[in-house]
Amino acid sequence: MLDRRSFLAATAGLAAATAGLGLPAAAKPFGSVSLFIPGAPGGGWDITGRVIDEVLKKNGLVRSSRITNVGGAGGTIGLPQFINQYDGDPNALFIAGAIMVGAIITNKTPVNLGLLKPVARLTGEYQVLVVPAASPVKTLAEFMALLKQDPKAVTWAGGAPGGTDHIFACLIAKAAGVPLSGLSYVAFTGGGGEAMASLLGNQVSAGISGYGEFAEQIKAGNLRALAISAPSRVASIEIPTLVEQGVDVTISNWRGVFGAPNLREAETAALIELATAMVQTQDWKQQLATRGWSDQFLPGAAFAAYLEQDVAATRSVLADLGLAK
């Protein structure tokens, strides 16, 4: 059940619970870290956040941590809450990514990522187009034919409007020469269980998400992957690209972490250091490999510059698709 703030979870070391009661909160810089995930349990940001949490703790980079999930509307519900409640908190990390950039532009959200301190871009992931195992559609060509035949009858399950999933769906439809206004795109905002259930239950014709969220179900044969949005084949992922199947669409989805608004420079630097230490661990590299994420580590100022570019690029794509002015 998705409601705006009900998903709240916290993690902290048992050591902290039993032995650390009397310690002052700020004895060590990263005794305790708050991971704020603006998506529902089971979604892309949630998986990213929980992986970060595990790697940080396993390698002793933090003593304890708490995770808060606030899902919905492409992260634009969690973002203002984070800005309100964590202002100046040097121990808070906010998970975000390309989906939020698009959602903020489409929804005209009154706050944006510029208010946060960019810590690091971490991963990149390609989008996958899948159909339920029971679907008669076997190939991308068949899917495109179906789409051209009756665009409204094809229902898509994906994330928030304006997010990477939605843009990907629009790009495919555009490549098929179908008017975008008639797209039956069903938004399961916040991602996670509900969207997956609609696919496994054969309620929708197709689904779009990052590879990592679908990987287990694809391997189990519950979902059939038609295409991946990479420009060329990705090692370890046996899914043909759209390009090689004659549909000229590529898109990728980055994810990263941000610090709270109004941090001092030293505090931001400490978070960047933490992220840098994390990406160098063996556990992190192994997680990237098993989940099919590409290493797109880009810390601090370089990340900030990239973000600015990405916002401009996303805005122009959205305008092109008629999703934003």
């Binding site: 902290a16 619970a17 009661l21 009397g22 002052p24 305790s32 304890s64 708490r66 409640q85």
Partner: peptide, 21 residues
């Protein structure tokens, strides 16, 4: 505060007495 808030790592914040220990 010490039995629950600290143990559960609630975000209840510091204060005059909270910061003493």
């Amino acid at each position: 505060y010490y039995g629950f808030a600290r143990m559960l790592d609630l975000r209840i914040g510091g204060g005059l007495i909270e910061d003493l220990f």
